[in-house]
Amino acid sequence: MSFAAILFYLFGALAVLFALSMLLNVHNTVAGALSLVVTMVSLAAIYVLLEAHFVAAIQIMVYAGAIVVLFLFVVMLLNLRDDDFAPGRQRLVRVAGALVGVFALAQFLRWLAPGLPELPAVPAGFGGHRAVGIALYTDYVLLVELIALLLLAAIVGALVLAKRKLDS
């Protein structure tokens, strides 16, 4: 098995494990958020293995570096304790979760049975910042502009709401 394949399976396993850890740490929100960070960083590592460097960097910068930090910020401010969570529906959720988990595991094992496949080769120039930039600003320029407009509207909306609260 090649070095890249070993890294791929390592980071794949990490991503899945910590995604599970995030789900299981329902009551310890900080541990949950930190597990999410590990998942994000592992995904970024997989993007690097796919030569999609731009997406990898953005994945870490935006998701791991900014969004989850904001989650943590809120979680720490609220300082939730175990008894802040309502108990109800726990049993039903657990049974359903266990069933889905068993099904997913069975599928996964069936897929694994023939042995771990090697990584396919990536076409040259795929996913670099040049390729992504050219695609974004030529073929998809309308969508980029629309998203920019949407984000601007969101910022203005947030400002208006916050300002009304400050004024009163």
Binding site: H53, F54, A57, I60, M61, H129
Partner: peptide
């Protein structure tokens, strides 16, 4: 993608 790497690492330093 050197500078992108720097930005990504800098954003992890917050943790």
């Amino acid at each position: 993608w050197g500078m992108l790497y720097i930005f990504a690492i800098a954003s992890l330093a917050t943790y």
